[in-house]
Amino acid sequence: MPIEWIWGLVGGALIGCAGAVYLLGNGRIMGASGILGGLVDGTGRDTSAERLAFLAALIGVPALLFMWGTPVETHATTNWLLLVAGGLLVGLGTRIGNGCTSGHGVCGISRLNIRGIVATCIYIGAGVLSVTALRGMF
């Protein structure tokens, strides 16, 4: 089994534990788009402190890991048109569809929630189409 898959399982288990802490501790679903989006559009104003704490650690801890050594490269495209279009679609889509990979994917599927399972199948399918179409173009 390639080492990347093992790191995937280990990292995934940590992500699941993070969701478990947020659920069992604070009674909330750990969805990155929901936690950030609620701050952006003001719907999460009364829980803004815990949202900010979550985001600070989500940004800060990988920054420390990066500084202390685990070499990672995001390999993101430098095509600004793709970055702007991709960012806008991800922002709009996750808020309109009420979730992203963490909320619908991790938290929804683990609860056997039909909405989460269907959303995950759809966004993976749309992502496959998008990647396949782009590969044909460039």
Partner: peptide, 22 residues
């Protein structure tokens, strides 16, 4: 339709760059 159209938009954007919110 909201769930489905949102997931479609998110998936397309995700495939353009390879980043999701987390």
């Amino acid at each position: 339709p909201r769930l489905i159209s949102g997931a479609v938009m998110f998936g397309i954007g995700w495939g353009l760059v390879g980043l999701c919110p987390g």
